[in-house]
């Protein structure tokens, strides 16, 4: 229970510090990168003009085929889903 109280206190301290830091960042324009200053909407990538140009597919040449990567991806997904089911069922068993 004490751990929970400590965690809550730490979280609230982080939240308060975050607000103070956010205000400081806005006041000093620290968050603004000159070439990426698109105004208030710059936060969301859809507002960055021609966002596609930041996704470079010509900077790295993968030696591994896309199909192998997709298979690895799908296997990893399946394993993680099974793990999620297992952890959730273990939790129910304990109750």
């Amino acid at each position: 229970m004490n751990t929970m109280k400590t965690m809550k206190k730490i979280s609230y301290v982080i939240l308060i510090l975050s607000f103070i830091a956010a205000l400081y960042i806005m006041m000093t324009h620290m968050g603004l990168s000159k070439e990426l200053n698109f105004g208030a909407g710059a936060y969301y990538y859809a507002d960055i003009p021609e966002f596609e140009r930041y996704i470079r597919d010509d900077v790295y040449e993968s030696q591994v085929s896309i199909w192998i990567i997709m298979v690895i991806f799908l296997i990893w997904r399946a394993v993680m889903y099974k793990l999620w089911l297992y952890i959730d069922s273990r939790k129910e068993d304990k109750y």
Binding site: R56, D57, Y60, V64, I66, I69, I72, W76, R77, L83
Partner: peptide, 21 residues
């Protein structure tokens, strides 16, 4: 998916589901 090869897979995909679980 192939833009950063296996490095991208490891960094972007290995961690995410583990964090969710």
């Amino acid at each position: 998916i192939v833009n950063f090869g296996l490095y991208g897979i490891a960094i972007a995909w290995l961690v995410t589901p583990v964090v969710i679980i």
